[in-house]
Amino acid sequence: MSIMQHNGGSVIAMVGKDCVAIASDLRLGVQSLSISSNFEKIFPVTERLYVGFPGLATDVTTLREVFRYRVNMYTIKEERAIEPTIFTQLVSSTLYERRFGPYFIEPVIAGLQKTPSGSYEPFIAATDLIGCINFAKDFVVAGTASEKLFGVAEGLWEPGLEPEDLFETISQTLMNAVDRDAFSGWGAIVHVITKDKVITRKLKGRMD
């Protein structure tokens, strides 16, 4: 079995009307043996930007620490919060630094991008494990349940979802996808990012 499947886990992000959502399962396993049902893979970067790291669990923690450091350095030097597009480039170049000995992670990024007029517009992106960026307008998926996530998301998602509807859509997509994946599941966490607040909810899921 590939290293990418070693610990299991999946992440998805979706665009809504003036909001974005990012969600993941909570399982940590070693092959088929489940170790933890509370292993979070999504981390806040700024108040309006989150990143998810599905893949090898040791690299989840390592990359979280690497990006915390690099984002802090950026914030200090630039004296402003990092924007989603810039952060995506940072993720890409950080991963490409390890082109021939990569971190086994496929990051998913979701946030609100500040426009020149001062308003916010939804932004999502994902990269592969060496940093090739996928800017998507609708949704991005990664992890061991990615195929299933694609199938359900393509069926449930529609443009212009309000925060509460987006929450329901991303939750249903994730839960039904991970229930068909042996390496993902054991509960889930969902973050819906709007311009004035982030709604975070933990979901109970099937424990089999």
């Binding site: 940590l28 090898l56 923690t61």
Partner: peptide
């Protein structure tokens, strides 16, 4: 904390390593 040789870290209510874990 459950830690393996890869550097995987998880805080857990209970844990095991080796054949005993099964």
């Amino acid at each position: 904390y459950w830690v393996d040789y890869l550097g995987t870290l998880a805080e857990v209510p209970f844990a095991a390593h080796g054949y005993g874990s099964y």
